[in-house]
Simulated scan of single mutants.
Amino acid sequence: MVPARVQRHDLRRIDWMSEGESSPEFKAIQAKPPFFKYLAQTWQRLPFAAYLAWYQVFTANARTKVGLGWVVLRPLLNAGVYGIIFGLLLGNSRPENYISFLITGVFLFEFFASTLKGGAVAVIHNESLIKTISFPRLALPLSTVIREFINIAFVLLVLIVLLVLMPVRHEGHWQLANTVTPSWFLIIPIMAVYILFCFGIASFCARLTVHFRDFTSFLPFIQRLMMYGSGVIFALENLLSEYQTALDILRLNPVHSFLALARGAFLTEYPVLTQDWIVILVATAIVLPVGVVYFWRGEQIYGRSE
């Protein structure tokens, strides 16, 4: 037990006291535990991160009339706006079955964009919580990813329903609806890797914003650049067919590969390429540990007044 005379700022120094420690003397220890112990402690706080995520999902739109409907309505409206504008501008360069192509891209990209934004403010918007409760701060970007996963689960259900019911053009003939094939189940491993990739991004951005608060002002531009560079609205292969070098570079964008794999899973007109699997697996194998380690190394600075 911590003596009553220990001041509040001293409590921060014992956030990571191990459970079996029973020394009669109070010992100040480092705020940052060893990395793997830190991961284990974060895993133990998973219920806390999940509860925080559920709370944020249900309170985000609590004061609006549509409520949770905005989770699905927002990407639907985005797809509608992009479809009207770019559907006309692209003309003959529109991808085949453009509406299905578009809503798949917009719905899946929404997960990346929301995780990027939520991860960037995960720490700076929860400073009062950090100063009040002892927990591994990695639970905050983890909670962001859980929250966006809950959102994307609703969105994916709507996407699947739309794709099933939507008329499609296949081999020059119109069909009243898409045919559900075994390839649709590929969305499960695709989303599993996508979640890990986005967790790495969220963890990296969460610490980056602590040092560079202006990063949040750059987010809209980063999101827009990623949207155009990932082929969310148009097929890069159609627009850049004469610029093979630029196309090869953009194909290394992991977000583009995630979207391409999702389209290949749902739409028979688009292939599931081995190259895209390699891109997302290599990117996730780099981004995830880099983001988590970078966040862990800054553990002791979160919540401190500058």
Rank of each mutant, 00 (worst) to 15 (best):
L138I: 15
S128L: 08
S128Q: 14
I133M: 12
F135E: 05
I99A: 14
L129G: 08
I133Q: 08
F109Y: 14
I130D: 04
I99N: 04
S134T: 07
L142G: 07
S100F: 03
G118T: 09
E110S: 15
E127M: 15
P141C: 11
A113T: 07
P141V: 11
P95D: 04
G118A: 05
L129K: 07
L89V: 02
P136T: 11
F101A: 00
F101W: 03
I103M: 06
I124S: 11
T104C: 13
L142K: 07
I133G: 05
S93E: 13
L88P: 00
L89N: 01
N126M: 02
P95I: 08
F135Q: 04
G105K: 01
E96F: 00
S100K: 06
R137C: 11
F107Q: 03
K117R: 14
N126Q: 13
I99P: 00
I103R: 03
T104E: 02
I133S: 03
S93K: 14
L108T: 14
P141M: 10
H125L: 13
N126E: 11
T115R: 05
A113I: 09
Y98T: 00
G119L: 05
F101V: 03
P136C: 12
N97Y: 04
F112I: 12
L90P: 03
R137N: 15
G91C: 00
V121T: 15
A122P: 08
L116Q: 09
V106T: 00
F135Y: 12
L129Y: 08
I99Q: 07
E127N: 13
N126A: 04
F112Q: 13
N97I: 10
L88K: 07
E96L: 07
G91V: 01
E96V: 11
L108I: 12
L89A: 05
T132D: 08
N92A: 14
Y98N: 05
S128N: 13
P141F: 11
L142Q: 06
N97H: 04
S134Q: 10
P141H: 11
L138W: 12
L88D: 03
S100M: 11
L140M: 13
F101R: 02
V123E: 04
I103C: 01
V123Q: 05
H125T: 14
N92S: 13
S134I: 04
I130W: 07
V123L: 08
N126P: 01
L102R: 00
S114A: 15
N92F: 02
N126F: 01
R94M: 03
R94P: 01
E110F: 09
P136G: 10
L129R: 08
G118W: 01
R137F: 12
I103D: 00
L89C: 01
A120L: 03
F107G: 02
L88Y: 14
F135H: 07
G118K: 02
G105S: 02
E127H: 09
P141E: 09
A120G: 09
